[in-house]
Amino acid sequence: MKGTIYHTDRELIAAILNGERHAFAAFVRLTENLVVKMVFQMTGGSADRQDLVQEIYLKAFRNLASFRHGSKLSTWIGQIAYYDCLHYIKKKKLTYLEDIPEESAMDVEPSGEVALFKSDLSAILSEAVARLPPLYQTLVTLFHEEELSYSEIGEITHLPEGTIKNYLFRARKILRNDLLKKYDREDL
């Protein structure tokens, strides 16, 4: 029923399997940012992204009855999204983890001013994140936005925790350098 609060994943899944549309809408609200961002980032904003998102949710719905409650729902659908995107990338021969030019990860000395962002933090940072390689973008979304642990990200991507940490370090370093360079150009 509309407005129903599902206290646990079990309650939510039972309601979805019972065909309750509002339960499924709640499930979408919980996981939409994760799925849509993963698809957008991994496929480079492909024109097929909406079809992919729909396919991921369709797959999730068909397999919901087999969800084992061993992991979080977001981790579970994240796995589906990750492998669907990888399959798409392979089929379309897209680049996923391109080589990052060494200079972009080189150190930029801190300027005297501490504040990196004078205004519109979200927009500036979003643009910088969009310039990262697709895998780095996905890891940033999973770790920072979705607040998944290294082991949960490992479950989704099957990458070792050390590799995830290392990629995240590199991603944040690139972001910082990118932002500092941008501000230098704008005389901040």
Partner: peptide
């Protein structure tokens, strides 16, 4: 500076389908 980036990454604009 890293702390600002980390805090900013938590609040990036959300995307919907």
């Amino acid at each position: 500076q890293y702390a600002q980036i980390t805090a900013g990454l938590k609040h990036l604009p959300k995307m919907t389908a």
